[in-house]
Design a binder for these strands. Structure first.
Length: 648
RNA sequence: GCGGGUGUAGCUCAGUGGUAGAGCAUCACGUUGCCAACGUGAUGGUCGUGGGUUCGAGUCCCAUCACCCGCUCCA
């Protein structure tokens, strides 16, 4: 059974030195995390496992480590500066928050018309309108007259002649207007904008603009915000590592004389001013990515027998899926999910997400494999033909001095390659592997008397719960029900079934009693739960069943008794033998049983114990983490034993 | 930003207006021949912060800060 809650994993991480809250001495800084001695090992192992798989094992991928700070121009032309700023608005009544454009898209046309009618466009500064208004409406060119464009739109909407303008296009203009319009709060509320969650008119706050990229400035001089000097000096911390790869496409291709198809892999930090960080290290504002941009021929140059973009995409999806499985993720908790058209990023033709089933919050993306076409390399190139600009919805790039094209000796043609992008979260991967590896196991037979006492109390719990279930069923209006009868019924059934399997099911019962939020309020449960929990903790061990390649410590060496210098000496010597090759620790700070449990908890796959027999025949016990089995191995054979298992 | 929750020892948490507590962890000494052993002792606290009520506040009141969970986002 993997982790039941993120809380369990978070606690273990803090207690055992994987992950600590950041800036803790000053009360913490929301959702920034520091990686402790074991965390840095494990995260490093995740990254190494990935690098081995996508760089070392292949003939067609090279590595790269680009700068984190990149010119503002990169992010303007990649589209991030525009798309990473989302206006948000809250409904004070329901507490729901929406992206303004999503909210407007969910409105009936009538409300959008009302909204336009309530905006006095003449009161808005013309300079702002110029940036927002469409250049044409229908057949009429409004380049010189943005006010006219808005007025035209408003008139059409009010007269319900919507066939000229689709809702989503209209929303794209309306949303930015509502962010800068001085009386926007009034307008939204007067127009009666509806909350999609309740289908009732909401009580809305001011839409506020959010920029998801972290800004900084190159050079120590302080400049006025928004000034020309400030904009010129502005840089962003990369929100994805991918753009660093695109910037270096030509460098890598030329310096290593690479032919398409080939890929560039990069591991590194990325930064996003997430609106809602949370779920431990799942969504943080500083995180680490493992990304590949795999460059391939554009469809029109693909010849008979060669893979096209769709086939390369499928192949990478398969490859990456297998990587996760190979490191111990169970099939039941890893899935591929096709992104729907409306959630595709601005650069993507098709994206398939790999999602892990996390405890508590459920399916969460750990990797996205996107077909980015030739969008990015074109966006950063000058002299792109007009038809390609139109196809990719790009503006001509006058800032760039490069054209990221490639002469293909096979096709005898010059083209801008397409790209398949497998992009995984390294920090998320670590969390997924930790959740997957977390196990609680019964290691001792609980005393019969205590088990019987628990058994005896369970019927009372079930009876009490069933009474609550009947009460809930009496309440006809399901919205008024305090409890969900179906949930109670399921709880009772599970509890009854588990009770019959005591004592083996002790941990399941502990989980049942402490997890059902409704159950915790039952009086008999309040009495029973601490008893069960105590007994469960006494008779169980926590073990991280990590793949050895991911385990932060590979080997721990103990003397059976720490006050026997002859055992201590040998144990220390064994540890020192392996320390240069892989993470090995020596420990004698507790009794042998406790030492084993400590290593179980951090996922150390093997422990070596030096005992009195060692003095006679030079053998030690090697104890395996998952099975807890021991075997005697001679000191000479240890090297072979571990090196083959760890692929050193 | 809105709603909910939590702040007491390194960790997990008790604490009824009247001397600041437990378990675990840590350290010392003794004991201990393989799966969270035991005994004795010790270390460790501005009870998140600032005000107020009171003879007296961890506890009641007000304010404030931080973190956690949920809401958008998506590696």
């Amino acid at each position: 059974m993997p982790a039941r809650s993120i809380e369990q994993v978070r606690n273990l991480c803090k207690r055992r030195g994987f992950v600590f809250p950041g800036s803790a001495a000053y009360g913490g800084l929301g959702s920034f995390w520091d990686y402790g001695p074991l965390g840095v090992e494990m995260l490093g192992n995740v990254k190494r496992a990935w690098w081995r798989d996508v760089v070392y094992k292949r003939d067609d991928v090279e590595g790269l480590d680009a700068a984190i700070l990149m010119s503002r121009k990169v992010w303007q032309h990649s589209g991030h500066e525009a798309t990473f700023s989302d206006p948000l608005v809250d409904n004070k009544k329901t507490g729901k928050r929406y992206r303004l454009d999503h909210l407007l898209e969910a409105q009936p046309q009538r409300v959008l018309g009302e909204l336009l009618a309530h905006i006095n466009f003449a009161s808005m500064p013309l300079t702002k309108l110029v940036n927002i208004a469409p250049q044409s409406v229908g057949d009429v060119d409004y380049t010189m007259n943005p006010l006219g464009a808005i007025g035209h739109l408003a008139a059409m909407l009010i007269e319900s002649r919507m066939h000229h303008v689709s809702t989503d296009r209209l929303v794209r203009w309306l949303a930015p207007i509502l962010v800068v319009y001085p009386e926007r709060e009034l307008a939204i509320n007067k127009a009666g904008v509806i909350d999609p969650s309740t289908q009732e008119v909401g009580e809305w706050t001011n839409p506020r603009n959010f920029n998801l990229m972290f800004q900084t400035h190159i050079g120590p001089v302080v400049r006025a915000a928004g000034s020309e000097e400030e904009l010129a000096a502005r840089a962003y911390l990369r929100p994805e590592t991918a753009q660093g790869i695109f910037m270096n496409f030509a460098h890598v291709q030329r310096s290593l004389a690479r032919k398409v198809p080939f890929g560039i892999a990069q591991v590194g930090k990325a930064f996003r001013n997430e609106i809602t960080p949370g779920n431990f290290i799942f969504r943080t504002r500083e995180f680490e990515q493992m990304e590949i941009e795999f460059f391939i021929k554009p469809p029109q140059f693909v010849r008979e027998g060669e893979k096209n973009d769709a086939q390369w995409h499928d192949e990478w999806i398969k490859q990456r899926y297998e990587w996760w499985m190979g490191l111990g993720i169970d099939e039941a908790r890893l899935r591929k999910r096709e992104q729907s058209a409306d959630e595709l990023a601005h650069y993507s033709k098709r994206t398939v997400d790999l999602e892990y089933l996390f405890p508590e919050f459920g399916w969460g993306e750990v990797e996205g494999i996107a077909n980015r076409t030739d969008y990015d390399l074109s966006a950063h190139s000058r002299d792109i033909p007009a038809e390609d600009l139109a196809r990719l919805k790009l503006e001509p790039n006058a800032d760039s001095v490069e054209k990221f094209d490639y002469f293909d000796p096979d096709a005898k043609a010059r083209y801008i390659p397409w790209v398949i992008e497998p992009s995984a979260g390294a920090t998320r991967a670590m969390l997924a592997f930790l959740c997957e590896a977390y196990h609680e196991e019964l290691t001792k037979e609980p005393p019969t008397a205590e088990v019987d006492a628990i058994k005896a109390e369970i019927p009372a719990v079930i009876k009490n719960a069933q009474k609550k279930q009947k009460d809930a069923e009496k309440e006809a209006d399901s919205a008024q029900r305090k409890h969900d009868p179906a949930a109670i019924e399921a709880f009772c059934a599970a509890l009854e079934e588990a009770a019959a399997r005591l004592p083996q099911s002790l941990l399941e019962i502990d989980a049942l009693l402490s997890e059902h939020s409704g159950a915790q309020n039952l009086e008999p449960v309040k009495k029973l739960q601490p008893k069960v929990n105590k007994l469960a903790e006494d008779c169980a061990r926590v073990v991280l069943k990590l793949h050895p390649a991911l385990a932060p410590i590979k080997l721990a060496v103990f003397p059976l008794k720490k006050n026997k210098p002859e055992l201590v000496d040998i144990a220390r010597r064994i540890a020192q033998t392996y320390q240069p090759h892989f993470r090995t620790v020596y420990d004698d700070s507790a009794g042998i049983g406790r030492l084993y449990r400590r290593q179980d908890e951090v996922g150390t796959p093997w422990c070596v114990t030096v005992d009195f027999q060692t003095l006679e025949d030079n053998t030690v016990t090697v104890r395996e983490r998952d099975s807890m089995q021991q075997q005697r191995i001679s000191l000479e054979a240890l090297r072979e034993h571990f090196f083959t298992r760890l692929h050193v």
